[in-house]
């Protein structure tokens, strides 16, 4: 057998009290969602126009 897994000993502690701040993440993911919706409608408009 070769090298042993370093991922094993993680994740045993209970969740920390303080939640991390993720405002930027929220806005970034919403922006991706908005980009998808806008792009979809642009091509849909092309379909309708044709």
């Amino acid at each position: 057998m070769s090298n042993i897994n370093p991922l094993q000993k993680e994740n045993k502690q209970p969740a920390s009290e303080s939640e991390p701040e993720l405002k930027g993440t929220l806005i970034a993911v919403f922006s991706i969602g908005a980009f998808i919706v806008v792009s979809w409608f642009i091509v849909f408009a092309l379909f309708v126009a044709r």
């Binding site: 991390p20 993720l22 930027g24 993440t25």
Partner: peptide, 13 residues
């Protein structure tokens, strides 16, 4: 989108 969220969260934290 779960992946997008997870990656942005990792970067932000």
């Amino acid at each position: 989108l779960l992946t997008a969220f997870s990656m942005f969260a990792t970067f932000e934290i």
